[in-house]
Simulated assay, not measured.
Amino acid sequence: MTYFGKETSINIPALLVPEMALLNRLPKHRRKRFEQALHLMYESFEEHMSWEQIATHCSISPYHFHRQFTEFFNETPGQYMNRLRLQIAVNLLMSDTSINITNVAQKCGFSSSQALGKALKRELGVTAKHIQGMGKNSTPKETTTFLNQLAHPGRNTSLEQELAQFMTTELIWYPPRGVKKVWLSNTDWDAIFATYGARSTRLLGATPIDQLENSWSEIHTTIGDWQSDVQEYDFFIPEGLYFCSDVYITGDVGYLTALEHLFNLAEKKKLKINAHAFFVEMVRSIELSQTGGVTFSFQIPIVS
């Protein structure tokens, strides 16, 4: 497969992180400065740093930083920071319906809940309360369409969707798999990573295919530890053929884009999805940092 013309191994996960894909195209000296700037953008929200302050901190004149950033990233530094703030805010609001909106605003670099509310209304046309309701009442497809508004702008579509075109897939026969159930009040992956950290690579999620068109509150995913002792297994995934792809992501937009593309590919290839089986997600690796990502193995059950 290829990333912007560069040949890669089939064993390397698809990279659905626009920032990384774009930075990889830059000369080393420029890449280092922009990597530093992006890290500061992620880490300085609560300090309310402006992009001009970040440019100066990275020893780049604000004029040159604005010009080069816009050229490389297809949006201005201000647009990028605002979109990033909204991505984080939406993630927090959707994943925790009880979270205080003022706290969300503070975490995302907005001066107040009113400022956050105005940004949400202006950019997405909805209120914070509406987004909290979507965390329970919307379907995965509806959520994907909504979050696409916060994707990285590309040439004709989002950059996440452009990168998804290079996902490599395989048909793999898996034997019966057993896991020890992990009992969680919240099966959102961000909540799981916050609890299990590096141990998340022991976990997989199994979701009934016939529930994937339901609202989030009606989708019941079993999280299991597949590295437990065999005698502790209390949930089993039957053997079968799976349409698989490994993907590296850093957020909800990349995650949902990858899933949508994989299911679309299965349909395009005329593969019949097994409606009585489980969609499986395995955590291959995880980077525990503010800007770190996760490699998932996504596996769609196919009628053999």
Rank of each mutant, 00 (worst) to 15 (best):
Y255W: 11
M49D: 02
T144C: 11
V104C: 04
K272S: 12
F278P: 07
F69Y: 06
T157H: 01
T139W: 01
L203G: 08
F65G: 05
F298G: 04
S59H: 12
T187C: 06
L15R: 09
L84N: 04
D190H: 01
Q106T: 14
I192V: 13
E71Y: 08
H261N: 15
R122E: 13
E170D: 11
H276I: 04
Q290A: 14
Q114C: 07
H48C: 03
L163A: 03
V179P: 03
W226C: 02
F263H: 09
Q211K: 06
L120R: 08
S61F: 05
T195M: 07
T102H: 12
T207W: 11
M94G: 10
S200M: 02
N264K: 02
S9R: 15
S44N: 15
L203I: 05
H39G: 08
H276W: 09
S59C: 04
V230Q: 10
G205F: 09
H276V: 00
K269I: 05
F65I: 02
L265V: 02
G133E: 12
Q231F: 08
R122Q: 12
R177Y: 05
F34Q: 03
I12Q: 14
L171W: 05
P62G: 02
L271A: 03
E170T: 02
T97K: 15
V253T: 07
D210K: 10
I192W: 05
E46V: 03
S111N: 04
P153D: 14
K181A: 06
L271S: 07
P176N: 15
I273H: 05
Y248H: 14
L271C: 05
K181Y: 09
Q68K: 03
H261M: 12
G5Y: 05
S215Q: 13
F235K: 13
W173T: 14
V247N: 01
D246S: 13
S112R: 00
V230D: 08
H276M: 05
L271M: 01
T207M: 13
R284S: 00
L262P: 06
A275S: 13
P175L: 12
L241W: 14
A55V: 04
M1P: 05
G251K: 01
A89T: 14
M20D: 09
